[in-house]
Every structure is written in C-alpha cells, then in structure tokens.
Amino acid sequence: MIPLVRIDNRLLHGQILETWAPRLGVREVVVADDAAASSPLAKAAMTLALPPDLPARVVRVDEVDWAGLAARKEPVLVLLREVASFARAIAGGLTPALARRVNLGNVHYAQGRRPVTPSVFLSKEELDVVVAAAADGFEVEARAVPSDDPAGPAALLARYNAAAGG
C-alpha cells in the first residue's frame, strides 16, 4: 500500500527519515524524480542517508508502477519533487484508490509562488492542480512534519488569495 505521497523539493531528507517514515511504518521509499534518476551522484547520496533497514529506489516519474505499489502488503512512501510531477503521476495512472493521502512538505519560494505554509510556496497553476486533485478524491494537505497542523485545500486557497503576489 501507499500510505502517503509526499511532494518535497529536497526529496529524501531528515524530516522524512526521522518523522514520516517511523510514523507511517514505511518499509520502502520510492523517489520518483527524473533528474535524480539520471544522476549517479543523487542516487549515491540518497542511499547513504538511509538507515540500513529501509531500502529506497530512485526512478523516473513515468516508471512508477502505482497499482503494483498499492497492491504491496508493506507500506511504501513515494516522494515527488514538484506539484507538476504529481500532475504527471495522475496522468500516468495515480488515483485516490491507489494512494489517497498526498502531503505537500517543502515547496521552495520561486518567482510567481506565494507562501501558503511556512515551508510551502505555490503558484496559481500548482494550486489549481492541488484543488482539482482534492475534488477528485485525494486527501491533500500541507505540512512539513506529522506534528504540524495540516492545512487542507480550502486553507491553502484562502492563504494564497490573502498572500501578496511574489
């Protein structure tokens, strides 16, 4: 099963290994990112951060076998770098039935993005993807670590509209 799909610009890092993985009882991490999959340095760096009992695979976004991962008995955490990758995953077969929960962890500031949580900045297009996914049945929330208060699509929309454009 896929207990969580996490969107995080930094992919695999401490927040995931120290909080989400133990909280969700994750047995494997799948990092779905085209750039990381084609970089030997990124792959080597990610494997060295992992505890010995937690395997990870780095694959391209299109390579993820969503149905296969969802059918597994052990929980598998899937990491995506950008909201755009999430949109591509949906186009490639990801449905709420396969992985209901989607977490926006860290999306860094960039031109055109506005702050919606302390660690997440979204553009209008990205917010549209999130809202549409929620309407389709995904449970989308934004927070860095499990102990933070989650912000749902309505809160993200309200905060986006309240924030000054950047």
């Binding site: 995080d8 290994l17 340095l41």
Partner: peptide, 20 residues
C-alpha cells in the same frame, strides 16, 4: 546542481547522527 543534489541527503545524515 551539486548543492541542490546533496543538501537533502546530507541533511538527513546530519539530523540522524548529530541531532538525534
């Protein structure tokens, strides 16, 4: 590119070893 590739994994190692 070097910075953006290594910052996550090395943060994970640092958090795991030094902080926890």
């Amino acid at each position: 590119l070097y910075k953006s590739t290594l910052q996550g994994p090395l943060a994970a190692i640092g958090d795991g070893f030094f902080w926890t």
